[in-house]
Amino acid sequence: MLRISKLTKRFGDFTAVNDLTITVEPGEFYGFLGPNGAGKTTTIKMMTGLFTPSSGSIVIDGFDIVKQPLEAKRKIGYIPDQPFLYEKLTGREFLYFSAGLYSVNHEKATEQISQLLDLFEIGSWIDQRTENYSQGMRQRIVIAAALLHDPRVLVIDEPMVGLDPRSAHIVKATFKEKSKNGVTIFMSTHSLPVAEELCDRIGIIKDGRLIYEGPTSDIKIAEKSGDGKFESVFLELTK
């Protein structure tokens, strides 16, 4: 599970994330929404150890990301908003590289990579340098790399950017399957239909504060009271 308690991040005088508290249960799919600059990516960067929180704590499957960073990171699969890859490595090399960082042994890595290549239909591109890849191809490699070590918690920042409809469908199905198998998923997205389709619960952040949290079913009720669109509920909340 994932437990964020009273999390705050300040950059000088600016508070990007303010007293944020969220708990995501095992197997739960949590959607993290908010307008640009609300603090979504900052929160995710703290969850993955890229930023140090100013105060508060993040516990990943029982391990505090600040106090026990290695144990906590072993549990996480992280998919960033921008799929940056080492350009001089091939896709396959990057996957072996990622597997090595998580100490996945060679035999298991080879098996996992083979399965993920089939799943994401990466094909012959895999042995070309990633500098030649399109955004969608990079995104597929990054998603595959995040799944290599069978993480207990998936932290996802804007996963559908650059993916064609077929790839997006595969990715959504994979996330659903993972969630069904008990993997905790924390996903930040701007795509309201994706959030509505995949998430069990939704949190909306604005100016670093959580302004709404509730099950997706509540959103559906709220939609009925308005014009029937999630977009209108979101716009009203983040006004």
Partner: peptide
Amino acid sequence: EGPNFWSVLSAPVL
């Protein structure tokens, strides 16, 4: 290391 460094820094490596 550039913007690719996320993959190393977010991994369980000291």
